[in-house]
Amino acid sequence: MLKKRIIFTLHYDKGFFNLSRNFRLQKIGDLNWLLKNYNFLKIAESIDELIIIDVSRDNREHDKFLENVSEITKNIFVPVCLGGGIRTLEYAKKLFESGADKINLNTSLFHDPSLVDEISKTYGAQAIIGHIDFRKKENDYHVYTNNGAKEFSKIDTAFMEKILELNFGELLLHSMDKDGTGMNFDYEIMKFLPQNNKKPLIFSGGAGNYHHLKEGLAHKDIDAVSTANLLNFVGDGLINARKVMLDEKYPLAKWE
């Protein structure tokens, strides 16, 4: 039976790993902090997948980002997804050649959908995660791009159907309202997903404790949950959460 996944997401900005709260960034530590003080390699033994996003708001330094990625991933043996500022096939190619098993497309998904086709032609749809940042405004839901800075469209089922037709492998839904708050995922967004959705779904934004992860994993339409909070699962937090969930027979992978 296919297992569900716990994904850890790192937010990188010019040499630092950040806590994001409603998309406002707070520097927590650099690469050395992440590997030495935070002991990230140990935590990485309890996750199913790693996403690293360059969330720099301006002038992304691609080479420096990739140097950081390379130091993090050389001792981690799970799939790695890289994202942030992918506007061209050339940069996507560079990411794949620098350790990405998958890439995460957000802004380009809406502003340059032809890029999805270009990348999938070479690397396959399975190598692309389509990432939607959404926020509730009064009673409606809206999609935002460019690190949450630009409103793109109101969300309804027709909008979701259209996006899901693009040639990417998995859909990631990230709540900007819940981002970094630890106040649980926003399940209401699910009502816009078409009944016949065939793409694996990653749920993100708001996981504050392992009860939230459990609730997400127990949902029949959710295939993976992501947490990006560097402080909620500090130390053995995530490692123990996984142990508890395995004891309670949650469908997670078991490793030696």
Partner: peptide
């Protein structure tokens, strides 16, 4: 859903590749 993505179980009997793997 496709792709089939994530960890899944492999049923094996005798296999050198799986030697020592529980």
């Amino acid at each position: 859903k496709l792709p089939h993505v994530g960890f899944n179980n492999v049923q094996t009997n005798e296999s050198v590749l799986f030697d020592g793997l529980k």
